[in-house]
Every structure is written in C-alpha cells, then in structure tokens.
Design a protein around this nucleic acid. Structure first.
Lengths: 239, 239
DNA sequence: CTTATCAGGTCAACGGTGTTGTCGTAAGGT
DNA sequence: ACCTTACGACAACACCGTTGACCTGATAAG
C-alpha cells in the first residue's frame, strides 16, 4: 500500500457506500466537526466517524493518511470560519479585543482541533491574512515596527495558548470537570485561615472565578499595557 | 469493586511484585515522569508503566482510581519540583516575575508532562502551597481581594498556557520544527510589499522574533498592567 | 455496446489502550 | 500459629488506529 490517498481534485470515480453515502473530503470534515460539537471532543474516533458517515472506518484512509491529517484539515476549516469576515474598525484596542475573543471562541468551539493546531505555523493563505491584519492594526495605531512585532507576538501566542488551554479543559471528560469544580469548592473553599490565610480570605472569589476562563481578563491586561506603552512612546519618552 | 484504592498513609502490607519491586505512590509517579521524558508523552500508558515498574498493569489501580488520578499526581510532583524552594522578597513585581519564569522553565524541563497537566487542578499539597504563595504576594502588594484573585487567575493561567504551548513546540519532531522556521524565513520573509505591506515592513523583526518564546514579553505586559491598576487603586480612583 | 481497468469501499486482523471481577497468597496483628 | 485481608496477578471486555487483501462497479477505451 504505497499511498491510498488521492488529491481531492483528481477524484472521479465516486462510488456510494454500502449505506448509500457518497464520501468526500468536505463531507468527512463537516461530519467530524458535527460529531465533535454534538457528542463532545472524545466522540471523535475513526471508527465512530465511519459509523456516523455510514461507511467502513478504513474508507477514511482513502482521504486522509492518518488521524492527524484529518485534524489539520479540520483546523484549517476552522481558521477560515472564524476569521473569514473580520474587518478593522479603526479603534485598535477594540479591534484586537474582538480578534482575540474571536480566536478564543473559535478554539473553544472545536477544542480538539485547537489543541492540535495551536502551536503550528501553516504558512497558508488564511494564516498569512491574519498576520497581515494584526500587524496592520498595530502599525496604524502608531507602534514602531519592533514594538509592533513584540506586541503582535505576545498577543497571538497568548490567544492561541489560552485557546488551547481552555480547549483542553472543555475536552476533559465530564466527570473530571465536575471533580475539579468540587476540588475548588471543598478543598480550597475550606482551608483554615490559620495555615492558609490568603486562600481562606479570598475563598469565595476563588471558587467563583476559577470556574471561568481568565482569557478575557488576561487579554484586557495585555491591551491595557500596550496602550500605556503607546502613550509613553507618543510622549517622546523613548524607553 | 467498591474502591480498591487505599490512602497512601494507611498502607502497611507492602508486598513485593513478582519481579521483586515494592510499589508505592511515590515510585509510580517518579517512574511515570521518567517514562514521559525518555520516550515521549504517548509512551505513558497504564500497561507500559506497569511493565516499566515490573508489575501487572492492574496493580496500579490499587494506588490510583484511574489514569486521571495518576496524571494529577504527576502534575503535583512537577509543581513541587519547580516551586520547592521559592521565598518572597517583598518586591511583588519581581516576585511574580520570578515565579512566572520559574513555572515556564519548569514546564519546558518536562515538556510532555507539562502538556498533559497544565489544565488540571490537583488540589494536592504542592499546588495549594503555590496558590497560597501567589495570593499572598498580591494581597501584600495591596490589591483588594477580588482584584487579587482576578490577577492571580490571569497570571497562573498565562504561565501554564504558555508553558504548555512552548512545550508543545519543543516536543515537535525535529523536521517539523525546522520546517516551521523555514516557513517564517522563506514565506513570510518574502511577501511583496504590494500585497502585504505590514508583513513586508516588519519581516526582519518577524523572522527574528518568532523563533523565541513570547512568554517573557507577555508576562511583562501583564505585570505592567497590574502595576498601573494598583497605582489607580491607590490614587483612590475607583475603577 | 462491450470490455478492461482500477478507484475506492469492505473485510478481517494486528497490536495497542483503559478498566474490572476474581482469585491466590503472603504479610501483620493477635 | 492462626486469621484476616491487602494487594499483586490474571483473564477478559470493549474500544482504539491502522493495514493488507479482496471485491465490485463506474468509467474510459475500443
């Protein structure tokens, strides 16, 4: 079996499956996304996907060399969907905030794909478009080039890193997620002030806060620092 | 089988394994960490771990309810190793900076373990100690409780998220890492100013910057924003 | 219109995974 | 010296990704 995968364009002999479905790369990716959305991240397996498509699991290997290939195809589809229609408004802080939240939401909508692709550089069209957009926002705001790159770098990595982290949380089996909430409530919530004064003092806030993602807060902190930095630069206080 | 796990302290009948090894929670965790570092994250399975220990896989279920429990124990051990000897100096910005860099370095020292545990709450001794320390730094600095929790949350998640992201990069196969560097150099480095003015203008900075982790920069931005916030609070300017 | 080709769906199998119910045995307390 | 029982071993279950061999029917050539 040298290579049973055929480039999508060259396909012609599309034969229906035993259950009457005509497979295609597109259909497979769409079904995989649906599966993830409907039954949780770990509902995605080659066998289950095959079953959902009404095809033998091994058929999928005519379209993807292995599961990773499938994941990357899904990720690519994701980028397209989440950044497809964004346009800058001119308010650089609001623009970056919107972009950050969008990337984060896009990741959370498809946790598995996000976890696998957050640390990869594809060099493909959608990605290049995104880089150009963000750098544009920062440079038009008035950041000098080295500063724009520094902030872009921190901004994009923070978005991707939080996206992956929070995705990993939502990809946790239900039981584990509930167990974590319980740890915050019954372990951290009950530490005596004698031995752990700071945890005890902030326990209610902790229990409430740790349930949600801190990405919006982290994003706002980053943007606030960037704005301060820009003010300093404008005031002529060179570093 | 109600629950075959016995709390570690209560263990007494330590019986050697067929191959003469005396199991313990500690030994299991240490072996798991070694396994992960030596043979990669997916080298960690109950069966392989059993083999490495010279014990039947099912024996491990006398010490951990399921694989997840084991992961949490590994995560906590990691925290303990990286934060073991830290003491606050009184300069809260410097302290948090040091803590953040240490956690990041700790993650990179055990990339695969970091990737598996960054998003977990263990509720175990080392973790509790770490939470108490960081909250202490922020509260002594003068942050009111809700603010301290907010900043703690953003700070810890940022450290863990970047730790996991950068770990994932270093865990990439050598070929893939070089391919990514090449993408930056030859794809982003050569885009024409006509179609991609912002990338073209910053290309040298981009190529140079994207090779390194942006965590230190992101950390400094977060701390700068926190300091600004504290100044505002001190000035009595509520919000 | 017939025929041959081969893309692509199917089947069966391999070796891996986490997890559990059962059983035997040896360590510890009495 | 005896009992109890903790705890390691075994076997089995249901699932996973992946592959090589097989079969069949849609298409292209004649």
């Amino acid at each position: 079996m040298t290579d049973r995968v055929v480039p999508d364009a060259a396909r012609q002999r599309r034969r229906p499956t035993k259950q009457g479905v005509v497979l295609s790369e597109e259909l497979i990716v769409a079904t995989a996304l649906r599966l993830i959305e409907e039954h949780g991240a770990d509902a995605l397996s080659v066998r289950r996907l095959g079953r959902a498509l009404g095809a033998d699991p091994s058929s999928l290997y005519r379209y993807f060399r292995h599961t990773d290939d499938l994941m990357l195809a899904i990720a690519d589809e994701l980028i397209g969907r989440t950044l497809g229609v964004w346009r800058p408004t001119g308010d650089w802080v609001a623009d970056l905030r919107e972009l950050g939240l969008r990337m984060h939401a896009g990741a959370l909508a498809h946790p598995r794909a996000a976890m696998l692709s957050a640390h990869r550089v594809t060099g493909r069209a959608h990605e290049i478009q995104a880089v150009e957009s963000m750098l544009g926002v920062l440079r038009r705001a008035g950041f000098p080039d080295p500063e724009a790159v520094r902030i872009y770098h921190a901004f994009i990595d923070q978005s991707l890193a939080f996206g992956a982290l929070d995705s990993a949380c939502t990809a946790l089996p239900r039981a584990a997620r509930e167990a974590e909430a319980e740890v915050w409530r019954s372990t951290y919530g009950r530490l005596p002030a004698g031995t752990h004064p700071h945890i005890a003092a902030t326990a209610p806030h902790l229990v409430a806060a740790m349930r949600t993602s801190s990405y919006p807060a982290a994003l706002d902190l980053l943007l606030a620092a960037a704005r301060t930095r820009l003010d300093h630069l404008r005031a002529g206080t060179a570093d």
